[in-house]
Amino acid sequence: MKVRVFASELEAATACAAHIAAEVRARPELVLGLPTGRSPINVYKELATLHHRGELDLSRATTFNLDEFLGLPPDDPASFRAYMERHLFQHVNLAPERIHFFDGSAPDAEAECVRYDAAVAAAGGFDLVLLGIGPNGHIAFNEPGDSALATSHRVLLSRETRQTLAPLVGDDVSRVPMAALTLGVAPLIQGRQVHLIAFGASKAAAVTAMVHGPITPRCPASFLQLHPNVSLWLDAVAARGLQRG
Rank of each mutant, 00 (worst) to 15 (best):
A118G: 14
R162A: 03
G54H: 00
T63P: 00
V207P: 01
L242Y: 07
S174Q: 14
P107G: 08
G145Q: 01
E68Q: 12
A7M: 02
T164M: 03
T36I: 06
Y44F: 15
I99K: 06
S8D: 06
M178W: 07
H227Y: 00
I189D: 00
R38A: 13
A236D: 15
P74N: 13
S59Q: 12
Q163M: 09
G241S: 05
D108P: 05
E110C: 10
R27V: 04
E110D: 15
E112G: 08
L10S: 14
A236E: 15
G104T: 10
R86D: 02
L88G: 02
A18M: 14
G125I: 04
H51D: 09
G71E: 06
A13Q: 09
Q225Y: 06
R192M: 00
R218E: 15
T36K: 00
V185R: 01
H153P: 02
H212F: 07
Q163K: 12
N142P: 07
E110Q: 14
V237Q: 14
P35M: 08
L66W: 04
V120N: 08
T62R: 11
A118H: 14
F102T: 10
S39I: 04
F141H: 11
G37P: 08
R218W: 02
R53N: 13
R38L: 13
G245I: 02
A109Q: 07
A15S: 12
Q243T: 13
I99R: 14
V237T: 15
M84C: 06
A26S: 15
A118K: 15
A111T: 12
D76L: 11
P77M: 10
H138S: 10
P144W: 00
R81A: 14
Q225R: 12
L56E: 06
V3S: 01
A13D: 12
P40E: 05
I189N: 00
L226M: 08
E160K: 05
G184I: 07
C219I: 12
H195I: 11
A239K: 09
K203V: 00
L34F: 10
I139T: 06
D75F: 12
T164C: 04
L66P: 01
L226A: 08
G71Y: 09
V120L: 15
N142I: 00
G200K: 06
P220L: 03
C113T: 13
A179I: 04
P96K: 10
D117F: 07
H87C: 00
D108T: 14
D146S: 12
A21E: 13
D75S: 14
D146R: 09
T164N: 02
G170E: 11
T164I: 02
H153A: 01
